[in-house]
Simulated assay, not measured.
Amino acid sequence: MTDHRTVDAERDAILAALRPVADGIAATFGPVCEAVLHDYRHPENSVVAVAGSVTGRAVGGAMSEIGMRVLARGDRAEDELNYVTRTRSGKLVKASTMVLRDSTGAVFGALCVNVDVTAVGEAHALLGALAGLTDARAEAPVTTFGNDIDSVVDAILDAHRIGPDRPWGGLDRAQRLDLFRGLDEHGVFAVRRAVEQVAARLGISRASAYSYLSQARAATDPTPAGGHA
């Protein structure tokens, strides 16, 4: 049987050991680099250390949509390396998210490295224009890097285009279940009070939200009736 106090102590030690690593990464790459250390045991304030300043994160801040997606995958989560995203302020960021595991193999946090490549992207576009080349690169997705978890949950809801143009009342049952399934896959419901926030945003009762979440999870549960997980 796992001693939770021992595992927690081990996780605390890993996080403590990585704080100077985060400082070293940011110092090596200079002012365009930021290293953020996350403790997923506390999703609403997962940021335990920040070195550098690219996304405006602060200690005690919330995880982004990327972190929530990792959290939703649980121990199946893998490192996400060298992806490109964009902040809401327009910065182009090249990032890597490296999951942290304890000795049991359980994912409990992440070390994220964010590099502001906005100037590089602008230089690339300028040189391409001078050379007469067409820039056909896909637009980088926008990620909400906020210190408030509610703003992150709202951003994920916005991405699902639930609003005046696609009201809850206009969705059929399958679409409603699909919405809750999508939100769950993004890790939204791992966050405390998220069900209440989603219910308020959709204009439904908390009981209805819990019901749809339960039905969505049941519809995707791979365990057959009478079987074992």
Rank of each mutant, 00 (worst) to 15 (best):
C112A: 08
C112I: 01
V115P: 01
V115A: 06
V115C: 06
V117Q: 00
V120K: 08
E122N: 10
A123W: 07
L127H: 10
L127S: 13
L127G: 07
L127W: 08
L127F: 13
A129N: 13
A129T: 14
L130D: 07
L130T: 07
L133R: 15
T134L: 10
T134Q: 15
D135M: 08
A136T: 15
A136H: 13
R137L: 05
R137H: 10
A138V: 09
A138R: 13
E139L: 12
A140Y: 05
V142S: 06
T143W: 01
F145A: 01
G146R: 05
N147W: 03
N147G: 07
S151H: 10
A155R: 05
A155T: 10
A155V: 05
I156S: 03
L157W: 04
D158F: 06
I162V: 15
I162M: 13
I162Y: 05
G163K: 06
P164K: 09
R166C: 12
R166L: 11
R166S: 14
P167V: 09
P167Q: 09
W168M: 12
W168Q: 07
W168T: 07
G169S: 15
G169C: 06
G170H: 09
L171K: 06
D172F: 10
D178M: 08
D178N: 11
L179H: 03
F180C: 02
F180W: 03
G182K: 03
L183C: 04
L183D: 01
D184H: 13
E185Q: 14
H186E: 14
H186Y: 06
H186V: 00
G187V: 01
G187F: 01
G187T: 02
G187P: 02
F189V: 02
R193T: 15
E196F: 06
E196K: 12
E196S: 15
Q197P: 01
Q197L: 13
